[in-house]
Amino acid sequence: MSNVIVHSLFTEFDINLFKSGKHYRLYEKLGSHIIEVDGVRGTYFSVWAPSAKSVSVIGNFNAWNADEHKLNVRWDASGIWEGFIPNVGKGEVYKYKIQSNNNDIWTEKADPFARFCEHPPNTASIIWTADHKWKDKDWMGYRKEKNGLDKPYSVYEVHLGSWKKNAGNKFLTYTELAEDLVAYVKEMGYTHIEFMPIMEYPYDPSWGYQLTGYFAPTSRFGTPEEFKLLVDTFHQNDIGVILDWVPSHFPEDAHGLGFFDGSNLYEHPDRKKGYHTDWKSLIFNYGRNEVRAFLISNALFWLDQYHVDGLRVDAVASMLYLDYS
């Protein structure tokens, strides 16, 4: 008996948009969302896993037992599994345990839409809400001028993990960077800062170019609201923020997007088109509508939720040319 209440955030219109690759705010529906159902607080979970036979939410709250909280598959052939778990809230760690129709393969995956992740090398997702009172109203009002392509641009590109270290060789936190890095960039006269990828990634030496948590600022430097504070502080100092964004490939780590539901869900099924030999990573299946909606939603997420001013898209050549490299 599963302790999951049947509930949905999806309308029929949402599903039609998703299937046609035109749902650009999927992060408002997929993933984990703290809500109230019939007067009870809890978390709604939804995940796209069309090849699954069963999908469970596992975590500390159920001793990682896949029989406790089984999600319900939608009737509309969207491949979305969903449900509401009462009394599970912010800060709980979780994963999806997926049994595939494909040879009964089992996978254990982080949430592709998680807003926060455990600190690597741990790999679970964390239920989160990033509350922040923005103070960049002025910048948001005139940034069109500052970000105009016909305006002077001077960009300071930075890898947050190695720009500067604390005593004991520790990373600076987002909060510390909001003091030190903002002051430095302002003093040097740059108009914009560009962060090398800050989305969650498992392997430090990759410098963030192998992503597993597309919707989560890395927990290495603090919480999502602390990253919002960093962006906010740059804006209050008249400095635009550009994010390095990697829609070109992703790593094969067991908890990541690869072979998600026991099938080539996010990656191209043809290994010649779906595997990047230089980087030993998987390549998105851009021909699949739902994958396009995932990526466009992700780009817009950072602009919408984090007030980011622009994206620098990584490895475009590898997306355009089949004979790349």
Rank of each mutant, 00 (worst) to 15 (best):
S297Q: 10
N87D: 15
S263Y: 00
E28S: 09
D309H: 07
V182A: 02
L311S: 02
L30S: 10
F234H: 09
Y24C: 09
A216L: 10
E194S: 03
M188Y: 10
E267F: 06
G168W: 07
F84W: 05
G274A: 02
I80R: 06
Y209W: 11
A299W: 11
W245T: 12
F250R: 09
G168A: 11
V155L: 07
Y321C: 00
Q210C: 04
F215E: 02
H23R: 14
E225Q: 15
Q210I: 00
P197G: 03
A299L: 14
T129D: 15
V4G: 07
W106R: 10
F13R: 13
L160E: 02
K151P: 00
P121I: 04
W279N: 05
E82G: 05
L172K: 12
Y275S: 01
F294R: 07
G89T: 11
A216D: 06
P269F: 09
P121T: 10
L71M: 08
K165H: 14
G258F: 13
D314P: 13
L265I: 10
F171K: 09
G222T: 01
P224C: 03
L17R: 12
D314R: 07
D131S: 10
E252T: 15
K280T: 08
I35F: 08
W48P: 02
A299Q: 09
E145G: 00
F234E: 01
K170Y: 13
P50D: 10
H33Y: 05
K70E: 12
N298S: 13
S100H: 04
E118Y: 03
F215I: 11
I98W: 06
P224W: 01
A254C: 13
F18V: 12
L295H: 04
G89Y: 01
S206H: 11
I98R: 07
W134T: 06
L30W: 04
H307W: 00
D76F: 10
D304F: 08
V88N: 05
T223H: 07
P251Y: 04
M1I: 12
K90A: 13
L303I: 15
M199K: 01
M188W: 14
D244T: 03
P197K: 07
L265T: 13
S32Q: 08
Y214R: 01
K144L: 12
A52R: 01
E179F: 09
L322D: 12
L229C: 04
I58E: 03
E92A: 14
K170G: 14
V93I: 14
T175A: 11
K144M: 11
D232V: 03
Q236L: 03
N264P: 14
N166G: 14
S54W: 00
D244H: 12
G59S: 02
W128G: 02
K133V: 08
H33L: 04
P50H: 11
V93C: 07
A299E: 11
G258N: 15
L9Q: 03
I15H: 00
F195R: 01
Q99A: 13
D131M: 00
D38H: 12
S248K: 01
N147Q: 09
L211W: 02
S162H: 08
P197Y: 04
H119A: 04
E82H: 05
